[in-house]
Design a protein around this nucleic acid. Structure first.
Lengths: 247, 247
DNA sequence: TCAAAAGTGTTAGCAATACACCCATGT
DNA sequence: ACATGGGTGTATTGCTAACACTTTTGA
């Protein structure tokens, strides 16, 4: 393949190639540590196909725009947030994943490069996108979605849980200083109540040596004031190649 | 965005969208347990840009062909192999990753959905693709590559090591029955000599309970005959959700 | 009988779990 | 003083790393 033919057959080959529209879809998780809920942002589609159906927020990629930039743009159009974590998830691109393909005689393929994002519900402000539907749904009560978006959601959920266990993404969305209780709540919300004893979680986390005691205390309501920690990026760099467990 | 405009501005918007050519590139690793080498399959480009330069084997996606099918096609065109493992790696799609974009006025974007594959060198036959260049390169002696293929290679290598540690992909490429020594060699070749003591590796692996003793023995040259095991898919299904370590 | 390869056992140290318990603060 | 949340300590259990050892074969 690939250029081993004479000129005539190249255009022949080109006709058999798929033409692509490339979209980026984002699974935006928000963690509500107060109500212990993991939420996903959904929008209601305003055009065919699947008009009126819930779907993941998405967009087509513009000229000179990177895939990641498109993903950030989706976020910026829907929500206002300080800290977030974003990473590419998977590229879904089978034929027949979009009914428009059949309508257009299979000449055009719709490819979705999906991203997953993580924010904190408390730090996030939903930008009312006109009067249309946009809402946070609990991650375990997702309604039927357009296209293969339910599959994408499930995939994102699995990745989120896995990432949280061996990678410090929690500190990307926490404020610059935080208490260990806040970290614990965040993990509990995503992984489920009984993922670990608080005392053991605490010990593991501190032993990693990537949190620095700021000396400050945080007091809210009754109870002993909690120590405020901050993420020590330099210390993390030194051990980033080693396996580590936050569970 | 997304259809909230009147008709006139839709075509205006369409002009600002990128048009995409979607290719699939494959990082095909082969494990040579006899010489303890991890190899990557490279091909020499026969067309501009980067003519004559080494690159990952790749292809453009055809009509009605899934991304994965395209990846399998790349493999089938280059090698003949019994057992293999294949998974999607990452989608590289920034503008300016392909010089053709600039030449064509940034109207067209070249997007690469990359896959990584794993095969065993001993089971693999290279299909001589005409007289042109195609070769196995040791994974730590990769020559300069076209496009961003070096980055893709590095990324694939990291993923391979990670996958090997917590996922049973080794058994996808081993023959249906194998000795524990063969498994150990395979891990040693990828992860480096001193990844683990043989005795401990053995104990961990057997304790997982996903290998079944076939009762048969394998004898080759001097030395005590080795027990032949097979992968117990049913047993694995029961524990696939739990974390497991093969290191 | 010796080398080669397979397979078993033993130990010290470390990490995970499941608790019980002490500390500081608001009401 | 007591409820509330933060923080510490500890005993048990299991796992890991390192290494010594036995078994079965071919030459």
């Amino acid at each position: 393949m690939q250029g081993s033919r004479v000129m005539g057959s190249i255009s022949e080959e080109r006709n058999s190639l798929a033409e692509f529209r490339v979209g980026v879809d984002a699974v935006i998780f928000s963690i509500d540590t107060e109500q212990n809920r993991l939420l996903v942002l959904l929008v209601r589609r305003r055009e065919e196909p699947f008009r009126g159906c819930w779907a993941l927020p998405g967009t087509l990629v513009r000229r000179a725009e990177s895939l990641e930039a498109a993903a950030y743009r989706i976020l910026a159009e829907k929500i206002r947030v300080e800290n977030l974590y974003l990473e590419q998830l998977y590229t879904f691109g089978g034929p027949e994943r979009d009914p428009r393909e059949a309508a257009e005689g299979y000449g055009v393929r719709y490819l979705s490069v999906s991203y997953f994002a993580l924010v904190r519900f408390q730090d996030t402000q939903l930008l009312a996108d006109g009067v249309e539907g946009i809402a946070w749904y609990p991650a375990d009560q997702i309604p039927p979605l357009a296209f293969d978006h339910e599959e994408i959601c499930r995939y994102a959920r699995r990745r989120l849980c896995a990432k949280l266990e061996y990678s410090p993404i929690a500190f990307d969305i926490l404020p610059s200083t935080f208490t260990l209780g806040e970290v614990y709540q965040l993990y509990g919300t995503v992984l489920g109540e009984n993922f670990s004893d608080y005392s053991n979680f605490r010990a593991r986390l501190l032993k990693l040596g990537i949190l620095r005691d700021t000396g400050q205390k945080s007091t809210q309501g009754a109870g002993r004031p909690a120590t405020l920690y901050c993420f020590d990026a330099a210390a993390f760099e030194k051990i980033r190649h080693k396996p580590m467990v936050f569970v």
